[in-house]
Write a protein that binds this DNA or RNA. Structure first.
Lengths: 156, 156
DNA sequence: ACACGATGGACAACCAGGTTCACTATTTGT
DNA sequence: ACAAATAGTGAACCTGGTTGTCCATCGTGT
């Protein structure tokens, strides 16, 4: 009797929205000197954070194994986004830190996300956009971001 | 001067929302006799559709190569979700059709997505949810679903 | 002081999913 | 009739995830 829209439209739109925003940011990143960065790398750099992280910590934050985290570290270190440090208190730990280049990319990302959001605000109105954000927060868990998109999606 | 929320929250919430819905549907699918189906498979079955498809057509609909599509076909055929047919007009084509098992899984998925949507409607109110759907449609392209999530995200 | 368990890092093997390249069979069009 | 386009298949390769294994280092309890 109700004429509710079909439920399958919602997940599609959510994913599409995610892709639109992330693609927009990475187009800007590519323009501004970071063409090698893929969506996944932004999340990794974000997870490393200003205080750095070890492979184990990074894996925990991202919801993947330490080995998977180590592969990302190697990739980003090779390209100048991370640098290794040592921990004088614990010779086992080999924390990585963000380089200037990494901070530069994070600044560009943040600005691009803000600009994209402003575009949505122009389309929807700030009021509606805030409602959208609030509603999404209400129906999603507060949980941290999980990096295992490929495996989750396709079944690793 | 404005105190706009940071733009980076939006993509996270969109992705989280997608995951919540898809995880919910697949939990239900697993309970109802389809534990092997991964998120990606739902999209493949949807893309095959009631009228069937060949590997080339499927690849086009999903935005991946025909070889990638063929791998999905092989997987789903082995598990009884797809069956091969022949085209008497063109011996090159080997279209696949959905089996009864596939239709069963699609019915379960549709019902689960509707139920999940109803849950969101209970939380947000039907009004707000419709606004959310309309707003998402307004800021996302009408484009079809692209299957290349793993490669897109991590850089294949 | 020392042995033992826990922790961090690294390496190898494996699987999934995507890609490109190459090849065969069939159809279509000139 | 023959050449170009199309459908399917297989192989090699890349990435990113996993598990399993091993070694070095730290912390703890006896």
């Amino acid at each position: 009797m109700s004429t509710d829209p079909p439920g399958h439209d919602l997940p599609l739109r959510l994913l599409l929205g995610f892709r639109v925003l992330v693609d927009g940011v990475h187009a800007e990143l590519a323009r501004r000197g970071h063409p090698e960065l893929r969506p996944v790398h932004g999340f990794v750099l974000q997870a490393v954070g200003p205080s750095g992280a070890t492979a184990v910590e990074l894996g925990r934050r991202l919801g993947v194994t330490k080995q998977a985290a180590a592969k990302h570290i190697e990739f980003l270190q090779d390209r100048g986004y991370l640098e290794r440090a040592t921990d004088p208190r614990d010779a086992r730990r080999k924390p990585v830190r963000l380089t200037g280049r990494a901070f530069d990319s994070l600044r560009i990302s943040a600005a691009a996300f803000d600009e994209l959001r402003a575009g949505w605000a122009r389309t929807l109105g700030e009021q509606r956009l805030r409602a959208l954000e609030a509603d999404l927060r209400a129906v999603t868990p507060g949980a941290a971001f999980r990096l295992d998109l490929p495996g989750w999606f396709a079944g690793g």
